[in-house]
Design a protein around this nucleic acid. Structure first.
Lengths: 253, 253
DNA sequence: AATCCTGTTCGTCCTAGTAGAACAGGCGTT
DNA sequence: AACGCCTGTTCTACTAGGACGAACAGGATT
């Protein structure tokens, strides 16, 4: 899986260019050529191709990614059964609590946000659909890790590492393992400012009847509102309720 | 623009494979090989590459597009200023009218839906974010075409044609030109079952102070509810109001 | 007017992607 | 239980075609 099998360099280059366009928020040929350390003509060829297939647009000597990606992105999300089913439940939980509620799944060892629902008092974060996060430093991630086979957890930690995001981030494997044990016992996971200072989250896993985890839902809020009974029981209960509804709808449809 | 300049074949192939994965809703190597008329090993190489860069996932011998596209798609949309600004206005218009309200822009001669807001009574259509439609058969499209330079309209009609979608679709150029004149006079466009039977839409363009069109908003509903004063004045007025708010926010921000 | 940016085109060399066949493993059938 | 028929994967060779560097063309800035 990590071994570089026979592979298509041109595809890598094209996608590198697309990613650079995102990173630079639009760019010209020369800029990309410098950024990626490729000859201008190569960059130009790829951009021509991407434009020809209508994946990239050009306005006034500035290239950018086109809306074909929107179509693909929407498809990549909607093909996941969990998205359709969880969306309305998450919406109502957000409205009910006023907070920010998220749906995410694991892909390539990272958590990917599928959908975010904002209640009236929801915090404003950098989170957005499609965003990737490390699993070890989020409630979502810990909820997912806790219900994964132990070997897969090891594998993920090996490849992704456990970088510190805040002072509170768990960076020790054994500590994380203990935390995951606790998550399994409780049935939900906490994030106490482990990814962002001032932010606390609670997350519940979504599993199949066979106890295979397919994703997680979480609720995020400022430390000020996330404490006491609300943080200890009310929100966890609400999340587990919602998770249960989603699980039921997943199995019977 | 249509001339096949020096171009990267491998990139085309990779994207062909991705599109085939969407079309087939997930597929195996052999299936793709048949669908695209390519050697199995070539398909396999591309899939390996796409998997290595984490754009494609594989579950049980079935390949599918991954969530990296979600990230790109969300970016491709959110980088358009009109999206951020129009979204809340459209949400409130949908809530207020109970119908389906859409935001779209033109790209490569087609209309692309950026966002859809559903009111309580909204019709259930095939429309989804990222979907592409012909401009000549939708209210959205006609609102956009009406405010485009005439040569660009000709160019688009030349490359895209004017296929009939229903009995009502305008398939004659002169008739369309007249319709576009009427749109400019009224300030909004109609679709009277021209794309889908039983569906009527009203659309208003979003323009810059220099009268350059940057997109359009539309409202769709069943013919039963889209008639009389509501269809003739109420909804058009509401759309123009919303469009004006969006235009103002676009210029002053 | 001359310099210094762009983006684009051209032509060559050799890489590296394509193609086809052979291999390996599961599943279902007989 | 052994066969055939699917998969996906690996291997090897040939040569198509993509990477590259330099040259070209057009604006803007000086």
């Amino acid at each position: 899986m990590d071994t570089p099998n026979p592979t298509v360099q041109a595809t890598r280059t094209s996608l590198d260019i697309v990613e650079a366009l995102v990173r630079l928020d639009g760019a010209g040929v020369t800029e990309l050529s410098n950024e990626l350390d490729l000859p201008k003509s190569t960059v130009h060829n790829h951009l021509n191709t991407l434009r020809d297939v209508e994946y990239v647009v050009k306005h006034d000597e500035v290239y950018n990614v086109g809306l074909r990606f929107l179509k693909l992105g929407e498809y990549s999300r909607s093909r996941l059964k969990i998205y359709d089913i969880a969306k309305p439940e998450i919406d109502s939980l957000a409205e009910q609590t006023g907070e920010l509620v998220n749906l995410s799944v694991e892909e390539y060892g990272r958590g990917v946000y599928l959908y975010l629902a904002r209640g009236d008092d929801a915090v404003h974060l950098d989170t957005h659909a499609g965003m990737q996060v490390h699993l070890h430093c989020t409630a979502l991630g810990k909820a997912i890790l806790a219900y994964m086979p132990s070997e897969r957890v090891t594998e993920i930690l090996d490849t992704m590492g456990m970088p510190a995001r805040t002072e509170q981030t768990i960076t020790d494997r054994d500590a994380l393992r203990e935390e995951l044990d606790a998550v399994r016992e409780r049935g939900y996971a906490y994030d106490r400012q482990e990814r962002l200072d001032g932010l606390r989250c609670v997350a519940a896993p979504i599993t199949t009847p066979e106890q295979e985890v397919v994703g997680a839902i979480s609720l995020s809020g400022p430390t000020s509102r996330m404490q006491g009974e609300r943080f200890d029981t009310d929100i966890p209960d609400a999340l587990r309720d919602t998770a249960n509804v989603i699980e039921l709808n997943m199995t019977y449809s």
